[in-house]
């Protein structure tokens, strides 16, 4: 479904590339975690799939198409096949839950009756039935992320990209969100999720692709978050912080655990 062939992305000629000769294939219906420290290339990976950026060299295939060969006026069609979820939800504050989800259908010209039928159905999938008329500021973080997921999948994309979707949520809420993503994946959607959240990765036991400085250093099926020893008893925030503070750690550490 997504295939990277020797993809390199250079933002700044003088710095090291954001992605360095990455080869990777994610199959249809797969659920893959993309892990690694900030700046390891996770977001660049997602941007290349969406054709928000162009690869400096190599080829990115999405649903069998080389995205470099898609002309700019056909990029919207590519993006209709991809749903995206972010850490900060990105809901429209003036629109209620229903309207936020319906917006994704309106802008691609779906008819009013289709929207009326589809939106409640999708809201039910994410566990928000009965909350159609709430405004985003009346919802908890987890509920807002559910709205965002509903919006991402309402047009039935083949791929769902999630960029740290649980980054702003507590562990219990995060697990709820993961349950929804898993359900979406079971329905046949390929899910790629970039995350720092080791608990979740360890819980889910899915494929894990670890990036470091733009290079894939680990690609394992049914894997754990990382080689790092889980820090028991410390708050999630501290763990996150320690993860960010250690990008200079020897690559051998992860390699040794492989």
């Amino acid at each position: 479904m997504i295939r990277f062939e020797n993809v390199t992305k250079v933002y700044d000629q003088t710095a090291r590339p954001a992605l360095d000769a990455v080869n990777l294939e994610i199959d249809r219906g797969e659920f893959a975690f993309l892990v690694g420290a900030s700046g390891s290339g996770k977001s660049t990976f997602l941007r290349l799939v969406l054709k928000e950026d162009r690869a400096s060299s190599g080829a990115v295939y999405v649903a069998g198409q080389n995205v470099a060969k898609i002309s700019s006026w056909r990029v919207p069609r590519l993006r209709r096949g991809i749903g995206v979820v972010f850490q900060d939800f990105r809901l429209l504050p003036q629109k209620n839950v229903f309207a936020n989800v319906a917006f994704a259908m309106q802008v691609i010209g779906r008819s009013r009756s289709v929207i009326r039928d589809t939106v409640p159905e999708v809201l039910k999938t994410v566990g928000l039935e009965g909350k159609e008329h709430r405004m985003p500021h009346e919802l908890s973080g987890g509920e807002q992320q559910r709205v965002a997921i509903a919006r991402a999948v309402v047009n039935r994309p083949g791929i769902l990209l999630a960029d740290e979707p649980t980054g702003n949520l507590d562990p219990t809420t995060s697990m709820g969100i993961m349950g929804i993503l898993d359900k979406i994946n079971q329905n046949g959607t390929t899910v790629v999720m970039a995350t720092h959240d080791d608990d979740i990765v360890n819980e889910m036991r899915k494929r894990v692709v670890e990036l470091k400085n733009g290079v894939v250093i680990r690609d394992e099926a049914k894997a754990l978050y990382t080689s790092m020893i889980p820090v028991v008893g410390q708050s999630r925030r501290l763990k996150d912080a320690s993860g960010r503070e250690t990008p200079d750690e020897a690559p051998g550490e992860s390699g040794a655990q492989r």
């Binding site: 429209l92 802008v107 691609i108 047009n155």
Partner: peptide, 17 residues
């Protein structure tokens, strides 16, 4: 820009945006 950003992501055409 929020709206247009979302429109881009869900694949709205250039015309609609």
């Amino acid at each position: 820009r929020r709206e247009t950003g979302i429109m881009r992501l869900v694949g709205a055409s250039k015309t609609v945006i």
